[in-house]
Design a protein around this nucleic acid. Structure first.
Length: 379
DNA sequence: AATGCGTGGTC
DNA sequence: TGACCAAGCAT
């Protein structure tokens, strides 16, 4: 691992910030240093690229312009504003933290990273980012960019997938952060990490800090950062039930024990769970359909007759799961009461007003493309 | 410490 | 198409 002298650190800061002042990106959340603006942008940017975030950020600020507005927002409006951005607990935690700020903090922001980290959804990285950018505290903001940039500059070969590695980087970066301009310093590292020092197709030869880049000097850029790879997503076969009556489509809101909490989908049944509830010797599509029909009839007092939708299952891959959703349809002549079923009938024209996850949109698109082109009008 | 949690872009 | 990556956090 490289070790920089005090003089090298001073020269690195000067070089980095001169480049940032000239070439730093003009981003919507950089128009001022309002803590609310910095906070919302940093939460949206977690594991999400800048170009994806920009339109969401603009819409979010127009819809929820202040901490108070966010604290008082309807959750459905919040989830709709976050729809498509992913990692939806971020949105729910954002509102919880806004409510914390209003009620427990009387609207006064903690002005240090340590204090900010007490708010739900704000971890070590985001605390450092807000503290440095909004309040000028000289602390590092160690995200994926910082891992990548400093592992290359200093030949740090610790595995960044391991939690304990964060501490090493924080200790290494802390003395390098410019105490005069910590926010600009941290943002400059991020801009560097998304331009000359990217994960793939990096261009270290033209980097403004190439003279400080030990990995470039040794032609070992591709060796850094060291990161063990994640396991494969687990295959999860589902049935997706498109149940239609004169009142509309049967929809369910996902509860707090499931992923996609608060978002709406058609009923989704895990195939393995279905066979657990109604065991048969050799499960087939036919036995599964019979089991589903029986379950709806007896458990929910919802008699349905299911038929298959032609085509391959709808496939949707998450970080840790790969869903394959086989679509089944039931057309009802009358509308049964949903006394024992935790869902609701939603008129076709109102479905798109609900917060929907991507997999639900894929299912709707598939169904429309299989002979029901006007099933879900966009208004 | 290890795992769960979304989506879109890129090669 | 699959694999990998992108401004992480909670539990």
């Amino acid at each position: 691992m490289e070790k920089w002298s005090a003089a090298t650190i001073r020269e690195f800061r000067r070089t980095l910030l001169a480049w940032y002042d000239q070439e730093g990106r003009n981003l919507p959340w950089r128009r001022d240093h309002e803590p609310y603006h910095v906070w919302v942008s940093e939460i949206m940017l977690q594991q999400t690229q800048v170009n994806t975030v920009i339109p969401y950020y603009e819409n979010f600020m127009a819809t929820f312009p202040t901490v108070t507005a966010l604290a008082n927002a309807e959750q459905a409006d919040l989830l709709k504003a976050w729809q498509g951005l992913g990692y939806y607990s971020r949105a729910r935690n954002l509102q919880r933290a806004a409510q914390q700020l209003v009620t427990d903090y009387h609207g006064e922001w903690p002005r240090t990273a340590a204090g900010l980290a007490d708010l739900v959804g704000i971890g070590p990285y985001t605390a450092g980012a807000i503290a440095s950018i909004a309040f000028g505290e000289a602390v590092p903001a160690v995200d994926g960019n910082a891992f990548r940039v400093f592992s290359r500059l200093l030949l740090i070969d610790d595995d960044i997938a391991k939690p304990q590695t964060r501490k090493i980087f924080e200790q290494v970066i802390q003395p390098i952060v410019d105490p005069e301009r910590p926010g600009a310093f941290n943002q400059a590292i991020m801009d560097l990490g998304s331009s000359y020092m990217t994960a793939k197709n990096s261009d270290p030869a033209h980097s403004p800090v190439r003279e400080f880049d030990a990995s470039y000097r040794e032609d070992r850029v591709d060796e850094f950062p060291v990161k063990t790879k994640a396991p494969r997503p687990k295959l999860m076969p589902y049935y997706g039930l498109i149940v239609h009556s004169p009142a509309g489509y049967l929809m369910v809101q996902r509860d707090a024990n499931q992923m996609l909490t608060g978002y709406w989908t058609f009923p989704l049944v895990i195939q393995a769970g279905l066979r657990e509830a109604v065991p048969v010797d050799t499960p087939t599509l036919e036995t599964d359909i019979a089991a589903l029909e029986q379950q709806f009839s007896t458990d929910y007092q919802l008699p349905i007759s299911l038929t298959t939708v032609s085509g391959q299952p709808v496939s949707h891959t998450y970080t840790h799961q790969r869903w394959q959703v086989k679509l089944l349809v039931a057309e009802l002549a009358t509308t049964p009461a949903l006394t024992f079923y935790p869902g609701k009938w939603v008129p076709a024209a109102e479905i798109r007003a609900l917060p929907l996850p991507k997999v639900q949109e894929k299912i709707m698109t598939r169904y429309q493309n299989q002979g029901h082109p006007q099933a879900f009008p966009k208004n």
